[in-house]
Computed example of a mutant assay.
Amino acid sequence: MHNEISFSIPELSSMKHYPEKLYYRGNIELLRQPKISIVGTRRPNPYTRAMTFELSKKLALSGMVIVSGAAAGVDAIAHQGAGAENTIAVLPCGIDLRYPSANAELIKSIESRGLSISQFECGFEAREWSFVVRNEVVVALGDLLIVTEADHASGSMRSVEYALAMGKPIYVLPHRINESAATRQLLAEGKATAIDDMDRFVAFISQQGRNSIEDTPFIAYCRTNPIYDEAVVKFPNEIFEAELSGLIEVKNGRVSVL
């Protein structure tokens, strides 16, 4: 069972050709939220894995929706870090195929709690060129692009080309000399900005999102300056993560948004 998107998505107007059709499963309202695109290698090193997960989680807690391509590696980690309810998976195949099969359960959970979209008819199997087409949609949907690790001549760098053409800001993780050669080159050429302080970056990006759209239910609730014990009962998972991430402050038994 799938549906066809019947309204225009302003972000996709930055694409060279607006998709003729878009199919979806899940919560279409996520398209109306501030979105961040995250891409990267299918074989991330341990540092990239940990940082991608943490960054996605903190961005989602601050009200951002994470967009990625459901591929192995960085894509899957970004979806998992955000949580299925805060992520959009863009598929390179028909929406009924849940490709790659190794991530079928992840994609299924995103369909149930988040949003899965595709511009390909049901039954269409992923091909080399359809990954490129998928990447353009991933980049177009986000307010900015984050590349957590990438090598030269990779699919992630094709995504960077789209971001540059669309005028999207590009951010990367700082890496050691012999790692992620492509993102280090982007920094050297002044085409990307390094995320040197994750909490400061998340605070900056989430503020931009708040300036453009309503808060998430959790953040909106925190803005009412609730009693901490009541907030813990209402949002047990979010409250602790937000406190650790520096998104909220607990003072005199009450919660406030920083």
Rank of each mutant, 00 (worst) to 15 (best):
C222H: 07
A242D: 01
E238C: 06
P236R: 07
G246I: 04
A231K: 01
L247V: 03
V233W: 00
I239L: 08
E230T: 11
E241R: 06
E238N: 10
E241V: 06
S245H: 09
N237C: 11
T216C: 05
I219L: 12
S245C: 10
K234N: 09
E249V: 11
F240E: 15
F235D: 04
E241L: 10
A242V: 01
F235G: 02
Y221Q: 06
Y228F: 14
N237H: 14
F235N: 02
G246H: 07
F240C: 11
D215T: 10
S245E: 09
T224L: 13
T216P: 02
A231S: 12
V233P: 06
T224K: 10
E249I: 10
C222Y: 06
T224E: 15
L247H: 04
A231M: 14
E243L: 15
N237K: 14
V250A: 07
L247M: 09
G246S: 05
N225V: 13
V232H: 03
N237R: 15
R223Y: 07
E230L: 11
F240G: 08
D229R: 14
I219V: 14
V250P: 00
E230D: 14
S245W: 02
P217T: 06
P217E: 08
T216Y: 04
F235Y: 15
E238G: 04
N237I: 15
I219E: 02
G246Y: 03
E230Y: 10
Y221A: 02
V233I: 13
D215H: 14
A242R: 00
P217M: 08
I227Q: 12
T216K: 02
Y221V: 05
S245I: 06
Y228N: 09
P217V: 08
A220D: 13
R223K: 15
E243D: 06
L247F: 04
F240R: 15
Y228L: 13
V250Q: 09
A231R: 02
D229K: 14
E230F: 09
G246R: 04
E230M: 10
D229T: 15
A220G: 12
I239K: 01
V250M: 10
F235C: 04
K234T: 12
V250K: 11
Y221F: 15
K234P: 08
T216E: 01
P236T: 03
V233L: 12
I239H: 01
S245Y: 11
I227L: 13
D229W: 09
F218I: 05
A242N: 02
T224P: 05
V233N: 13
